Amino acid sequence: MNFSRSIIGVLAMLLVFGAALSSANAADYSPLDCKKASSAAERTICSDYGLGQSEARVATLYGLTTSLVAMGQRGTIQDDQRAFLRQRDACGANAGCLRAAYAARDKQLEAVMQSIQQRGPF
């Protein structure tokens, strides 16, 4: 069991590294650029270390999951991500609302990763 987790971890790291080097990234979501934060939600996320960490984690999990699943499931994950972003932005400057939105999205993406771990990405 630990061996398969190690393999998943190595694959995940390789995918993150590969995605960082790839100019043709299929993902339509990346972490916030706090220098360009324009909405109340974005400014709140950028000013709160914990929310910033949640943003980075969700962005990483999103990138991993969309690169490890089949095209049909990828579309569902992308649709769910767009819905999450609308929900996140609707929170405005309410940090509690933002934390709840990130926690829910993190849980969804973790469930996808658990499914991949159990059956493999192929």
Results as ranks from 00 to 15, higher is better:
F122Q: 13
I45L: 03
N94E: 10
R99K: 13
C97N: 05
V10L: 14
M113I: 07
S54C: 10
A26H: 13
D89L: 01
R57S: 10
V58C: 04
A19Y: 10
A111F: 04
L11S: 11
G72Q: 13
R5I: 12
C46P: 03
A37G: 02
G92Q: 03
M71D: 15
Q78A: 10
I45G: 02
L21N: 11
T60K: 08
A37W: 01
R119D: 11
R88Q: 07
T65V: 14
Q108L: 03
P121E: 09
A20W: 09
K107R: 15
F84C: 03
G72A: 14
Q78Y: 01
A59T: 05
A90F: 00
A83I: 06
R74H: 09
S38C: 02
A59W: 00
Q53L: 10
N94F: 06
M113F: 02
A37D: 03
C34D: 05
A26W: 09
Q114M: 13
L68M: 14
S115D: 12
V69Q: 04
R88V: 03
N25W: 01
D79S: 11
V16Q: 09
P31E: 06
Q118Y: 12
Y49K: 15
A95M: 07
V10G: 08
A104Y: 08
A93L: 05
I77W: 01
R88F: 02
M1S: 14
M13Q: 15
A100G: 09
L15Q: 09
Y29T: 04
L15V: 11
R119G: 10
D33N: 11
R88S: 04
A40D: 08
Q87D: 11
L21G: 12
G120F: 08
L51I: 09
L14M: 15
R105V: 00
N25M: 05
G92P: 02
L98W: 02
E110V: 15
M71G: 12
I7T: 13
R74N: 04
P31F: 02
S38Y: 04
G72W: 06
F122H: 12
M13D: 15
C97A: 10
F17K: 14
M1C: 12
S6Y: 13
S47N: 11
L68C: 06
L14H: 13
N94L: 03
L21T: 08
S54F: 00
L11D: 07
L14T: 15
A19P: 00
L109H: 00
N2L: 14
A111I: 06
R86V: 13
A111Q: 08
K107L: 10
G18E: 10
M113H: 08
V112C: 06
S67R: 11
D28A: 05
Q114C: 02
